[in-house]
Design a protein around this nucleic acid. Structure first.
Lengths: 400, 400
DNA sequence: CCTATTAAGTCAATTCGCTTGACTTAATTA
DNA sequence: TAATTAAGTCAAGCGAATTGACTTAATAGG
């Protein structure tokens, strides 16, 4: 009765799980390949033609896929390709940054339908939440005006903000202690009536790269995100990895040397915060993004000085990431202007030797990902979409 | 016809997958909890009583579980607990080290049934394979003499050897280039007629910790293995993670500093090889293990000198691992004598501050795992068992 | 031009494993 | 001794994939 069962076990499954998985597999196949015939889907998923037909019928009824015109190709009956209906599902993505918040609505294929941004008080989450709820309300209205029935198709709200979460002694200068301690998920769930999920900004960035960027279809990738702080988003076995407490990849606090003295957190040296400090800029200043872009384009010597130093630390970070994870590729992303990110990328070469330095490689060791400032919000929005539609172990199992 | 389908998709599933998964879930539940009644299993796995009954009946027919005596406990009908039958399955584990090979047979619950070891030529794999096949043959005979029908229940052969694999320029001094380039898996499969799987030694060590050691039932753990070299075995989401090319966790080659100069691979400073060098010992020497154990017990100053330096690097490794993976615990294991491992563990404290330094912790940040020299072989043997019996995503999907 | 071949996709019956709900058994408690 | 609680069985039902024959519609080749 009163005893919480101490039995450890994974959950079993049944036909519902089977069916849910197969639906997800089909949706993923369509997302990855654009448009496929029933026959192609059957071959790709190893299901029978008949099973595929049934599921397609289902998905078509749910308005998640549509048939395109039949295509004649060689002998045999022409095939009818199916593709995803972008407006089959929507999700809201929310980025919370130190002085700024961005909200987007994306559709099933990750396209941005509506967006909004506003300033945010650094240390007053309850006031901030009111601002956020206003923005969310705005984009929801916009969405409703564009697509009838869209509310029914809203699968959730994903939030991305700088981590790490749940720390004993948050470092006030580098983190957002007020926000990190505020019951944000609950407040937003109550305020929007949606399912709310929270992740750190690098994870969101990795998710964005995975669905629409450089990690599309790659199963092992690490996304190094240089924002105000620095962190890594980990795609392992095709899924985002978040660790035991949701803080995996929070490398900003990694100390740069074994010795106690002289060892600095990575964040203090290779992050935009360190650049602002180096340049004596105020991070809250308006037009900062443009200023940085211009300085980078002009190869301003002070910026180049920071780039050199930061690149040295980042080069070593990539080395460690490669050595530890053995990923197929590492993706450098940043909230900085593209010109600056490119300078960093260049300065990071040549890369340090590592295990990743293999005879045959399909993907580059290091590549530039998106530098779109909205990418974090898009990645945040992708999380509920992924939760709802991507094939994953947990989706097969029963309640849990 | 001739076109290899370029379509990317995960495989679908069907009732076979469902049933296979549920069987595995039940076996895992029994392994983790010792013995459970049908009713308990139903609650734990979220399956219906009836489904559990059917599966139990199946497993009982396959001699994988047996009923124990009924137990009266409070009101209601007494329940009949079931437990795994250890001799329900066997696997062979093979450790290949630089000058030594060990072979074990383990049963379904990870108990060692037979063992054998022999010297191995460092750079002649083909001669080595003959030696290995002889040992394997020996333990198989032993097994057959102990358990009738055991051959039918032999699920595979797991091999563990130092990585990394597939490198461009193997470092002859630190690796085993001849072995790493030899078609070992094929040779062993041909020579034994068994399914053969290969992993690095740290991964095997982590697997051993997972099934019978400190990581039993823990979903996020990193196993730091100090052997001749050094590496980490990664348990993420309850499964071993091996990266894009099977080299995840091979941190021996990690450089210890961002700068190009003065940066040494971790392996050169914190590994038994470095200790041998420090002490001027020959690693092939007989009785080395005992010598080291005695020196450690006597707190020999030269050993303590190495311990201090190595511990400093290891302390920092733990810091990095915690920062990057956010595991529930880190486990220190070693092929060194326990006394030496304990010295290392002590010298690593106090640990560096990190994200793992949380207000509430269920498990210690760092704990000592096994120092049994046979652990690697046991872990190697656990891999085929796990592949055959543990619940995992890939086991639900169809072929592939 | 006509026929054979190839391939997409449907139809209807079947199978298989989990679910459902009623029932039996056997203990404790009042 | 009767009520209650819980384990476990029975038998029918259901849902989703499978199977194999069939239909449709194109191209290739004689």
């Amino acid at each position: 009765m009163h005893d919480i069962s101490p039995i450890r076990a994974k959950s079993g499954t049944n036909q519902e799980g089977t069916s849910a998985h197969n639906r997800r597999v089909m949706i993923e196949a369509l997302r990855l390949n654009g448009a496929l015939s029933r026959a192609d889907l059957a071959r790709a998923t190893q299901l029978t033609k008949q099973a595929v037909s049934n599921i397609i019928e289902d998905l078509e009824r749910d308005r998640l896929v549509v048939a395109l015109d039949a295509v004649r190709k060689g002998r045999g009956q022409p095939f009818t390709p199916y593709r995803l209906v972008p407006e089959g599902a929507f999700a809201i993505g929310l980025q919370i940054d130190r002085h700024l918040t961005r909200v987007v609505v994306v559709d099933l294929v990750g396209k941005v339908i509506a967006r909004a941004e506003a300033g945010l008080p650094f240390d007053e989450p309850s006031a901030g939440v009111r601002i956020i709820l206003g923005l969310v309300d705005g984009v929801r209205r916009k969405l409703a005006s564009l697509f009838a029935q869209s509310e029914r198709r809203l699968v959730g709200l994903g939030v991305a903000m700088p981590g790490p979460f749940g720390l004993k002694n948050p470092d006030n200068k580098w983190m957002m202690p007020a926000w990190q301690q505020f019951p944000l998920v609950e407040a937003l769930a109550a305020g929007t009536g949606l399912d709310v999920g929270l992740q750190n900004d690098a994870a969101a960035c990795a998710t964005a790269e995975r669905i629409v960027g450089a990690a599309h279809g790659v199963d092992h990738a690490v996304c190094l995100y240089v924002g105000y702080g620095i962190a890594a988003g980990l795609i392992l076995n095709g899924e985002l990895y978040s660790g035991g407490n949701g803080n995996a990849g929070e490398i900003g606090m990694a100390l740069l040397a074994p010795a106690g003295s002289g060892s600095t957190p990575l964040e203090h040296r290779a992050s935009l915060a360190s650049l602002y400090q180096h340049l004596g800029l105020d991070p809250t200043e308006r037009g900062l993004y443009e200023t940085l872009g211009a300085l980078a384009l002009a190869r301003d010597p002070r910026v180049m000085g920071w780039v050199e130093k930061a690149a040295s630390d980042l080069r070593w970070s990539v080395h460690l990431i490669e050595t530890i994870f053995d990923p197929q590729t590492v993706i450098l992303t940043s909230s900085a202007p593209e010109a600056l990110a490119r300078l960093l990328l260049q300065a990071m070469h040549p890369l340090l030797p590592s295990i990743a330095d293999r005879p045959v490689r399909r993907l580059p060791r290091l590549q530039l990902g998106t530098t779109d400032p909205w990418a974090i919000a898009v990645g945040a929005a992708a999380e509920p979409i992924s939760r709802a539609f991507d094939p994953r172990f947990s989706a097969i199992l029963k309640a849990g």
